[in-house]
Simulated scan of single mutants.
Amino acid sequence: MGDEDTGTGGAVSLRHTSQLAGGELRQVRELLDAAFEGDFGDEDFEHALGGMHVLVHEDGELVAHGSVVQRRVLHGGLALRTGYVEAVAVRADRRRCGLGGTVMEAVEGVVARGYVLGALSASAAGARLYAGRGWRVWGGEVGVLGPGGPERLPEEEGSTYVWAPPGGGVLLDPTAGPLSFDWRNGDVL
C-alpha cells in the first residue's frame, strides 16, 4: 500500500518494520514517547516492531502510528494466529480529528487479511476508540506462556480487547478457557 489521501488531510502508508529506515524508526519512537508522555519504554517499542506499521503523515510530519505484529494465542485447545495491535498513537495537537480511526481502519485491514483474530491491550484513554470500532473487552482470563509455563496476567484482564475479522475470524468463548499469549520480554518477571 502506498501513500493515499485519507480524507483527514494526511497520507497513510503501510510498511513492514524492515522497510523503515533508521530515521523513520526514530520518528516513530519520538511520536510514541511524546504521545504516551514518558510511559513508553524500550520493551514497549520492541513489542511494536517486526510487523506492519501504519504511518500517517501531514505536511511531511508523522502525526499518527499503529502497528500489527504476529502473536500466537492458545484458547480452547487451538493455537490462533493473532494480529496483535501495538503502539497506536496520535500527536497531541492532532487528536480528536479522526486520525485514530484512520490508523485503526488500516490496522483492521492488516488483521483481516492475515489473521483469524485481532487483540490489543488498551489504555483507559484508548478504550473508547477500540470499543467504538467493534473491538470488545475479553471477558475471561488472560495469561502468558512464560519461560516457566503458563502464568495468569490478572492486570491485563479488563483491558484486553479482541476483534474477529468479518468473514474469516474466530469467535471466542470465555467459558472455553483463558487467552494465553506467547511470551515476549516484559510479559512476566
Rank of each mutant, 00 (worst) to 15 (best):
A89I: 07
L189Y: 00
T8I: 05
H65K: 12
A125N: 04
M1S: 14
S123E: 05
W135K: 06
N185C: 06
P165N: 13
T175P: 00
A89D: 12
V188W: 06
V56F: 06
C97T: 15
D44N: 14
D44V: 14
G10L: 10
V162K: 07
P174G: 12
L120Q: 03
V90S: 08
G10H: 14
A106Y: 12
W163Q: 02
V12H: 02
V103P: 09
R15K: 15
E61L: 08
P166G: 10
P150K: 01
V162M: 05
C97I: 00
G7I: 11
G77E: 10
E108K: 14
A131L: 15
V137W: 00
G100T: 10
Y161E: 00
V170F: 08
G149R: 00
L55Q: 13
V170Y: 07
Y161M: 14
F36C: 11
E156K: 13
P178G: 08
P154W: 13
R184E: 14
W138R: 06
G66I: 09
E30S: 07
G38R: 02
G134A: 04
L78F: 03
R184G: 10
A122P: 02
G76F: 01
V111M: 13
V107Q: 10
E108V: 05
V88E: 07
G186A: 11
M1D: 09
G143Q: 07
L74C: 04
A125M: 10
D59V: 01
R95N: 13
V103E: 14
A35P: 03
P174H: 08
F40R: 04
A164L: 06
A176H: 12
F36T: 13
R128F: 03
A89N: 12
T160Q: 06
A164G: 13
L20M: 13
G66Y: 07
N185K: 15
V68W: 03
G7P: 10
E141I: 03
L129T: 09
G22F: 02
D3P: 13
G167R: 02
G76N: 08
G126Y: 01
P174Q: 10
V68S: 07
A131Q: 07
R29F: 08
G140E: 14
G2L: 09
L172N: 11
S159Q: 05
G98I: 11
G149E: 04
Q70W: 03
S67T: 14
V56S: 07
F36E: 09
A124I: 01
G10A: 15
A164I: 08
F181R: 09
V144H: 01
G77C: 07
R128T: 15
G7T: 13
G169N: 07
H16A: 15
V85C: 13
G98Y: 12
R113Y: 00
